[in-house]
């Protein structure tokens, strides 16, 4: 695969934006500045960026409860995203959705989802609509290893396959459904092997290698765009933080977490880009600093943004 210099730099920049956003989200929660829950994707940046960077700008994404990374990768304005996270009127969803429901329909992000597996049947509908409208876009549907055991997974993959819908199913296998290890939840080694049951290609990719994910999704996206139907990609990764804010990590060892941290997707990608001369250490450091600055500015925007007015509480229930 040919990689343009700008594309590679952009991918690394986006990964840093995600890392910086997630760290700030965690900090804001610790400071008591957000009152809701959140699901951080630190350690999974390569999966989000690798997948979304393989799409066209006008393609659609359906995301998950752990969706900050997908949203940023899809090109979200961090100011509006942070404002949503902080429940402000200037947020993407006017503060009504919060972390688990950030959506930017105009930008092709059809929403994070509070229900595990909730996006899978929606992907069938979006794919069906795109096909009926004879549009050339596709939809990328993120979900996790936990959702792969939900009935919605079976119905959605089967329907997308029989109708050859332009869908890419991307399973982020981060090893745990809250506390349940994927090894205890699934009797086969690779979730992607389930693709065979639906008559679609299944690919297991190193989810901590942004280029590997990009390549797998590129192939699946081409296939979907050509009308050949959906694919299932399993992106094997790891979440560094707990499931949500209440997780005490009782179900896994510190050694395991440290071992995965040693495979940090950002460090790996940075080392590779420095090694092949795409960027210098100084460039890399600058990218990182810029990302944190963008996030600081987003916090300032969000903090200075107005709260939703109580008089508007019932707006938006019906069209």
């Amino acid at each position: 695969m040919e990689w343009s210099h700008d594309k590679l730099i952009d991918m690394l920049r986006t990964m840093w934006l995600i890392r910086a956003f997630e760290e700030k989200a965690e900090e804001l929660y610790a400071l008591g500045k957000v009152h809701g829950t959140m699901h951080l994707s630190i350690g999974q940046e390569a999966s989000a960026v690798g997948a979304v960077s393989a799409l066209r700008a006008d393609d659609f994404v359906l995301s998950t409860h752990r969706g900050h990374g997908h949203c940023i990768a899809k090109g979200a304005d961090l100011n509006r995203m942070m404002a949503e996270f902080m429940g402000k009127e200037t947020g993407y969803c006017r503060g009504r959705g919060g972390s688990m429901h950030i959506a930017d329909t105009a930008g092709g992000n059809l929403g994070a989802n509070g229900v595990v597996g909730g996006g899978l049947p929606l992907a069938v509908g979006v794919g069906l609509g795109l096909k009926m409208q004879k549009r050339s876009q596709i939809v990328l549907c993120f979900f996790g290893d936990g959702a792969a055991n939900n009935g919605a997974f079976h119905e959605a993959l089967n329907m997308a396959a029989i109708w050859k819908l332009p869908v890419v199913f991307l399973c982020e296998n981060n090893q745990y459904a809250i506390s349940l290890s994927v090894k205890k939840a699934i009797a086969i080694e690779h979730i992607a092997d389930r693709a065979a049951a639906y008559g679609m290609p299944g690919i297991t990719a190193d989810g901590n290698d942004v280029l590997a994910v990009h390549e797998a999704v590129s192939q699946a996206a081409s296939r979907a765009r050509e009308g050949a139907g959906p694919s299932l990609i399993e992106s094997v990764t790891y979440r560094w933080r707990g499931h949500s804010k209440s997780d005490a990590n009782r179900y896994r060892t510190r050694d395991e977490i440290e071992a995965w941290k040693a495979r940090c997707p950002i460090q790996r990608f940075t080392a590779r880009l420095i090694a092949d001369g795409t960027l210098t250490e100084e460039d890399a450091d600058k990218l990182r600093q810029e990302a944190y600055a963008v996030v600081e500015a987003a916090v300032a925007f969000a903090e200075s943004s107005p709260e939703p007015r109580l008089e508007t509480i019932e707006e938006g229930v019906y069209a």
């Binding site: 059809l110 049947p121 069938v124 979006v126 069906l128 609509g129 009926m132």
Partner: peptide, 16 residues
């Protein structure tokens, strides 16, 4: 049935 409900929701979301 869940797939049908998802199909109509998703398709409606993009203009059908």
């Amino acid at each position: 049935e869940l797939g049908i409900a998802g199909a109509i929701t998703g398709a409606a979301l993009i203009g059908m």
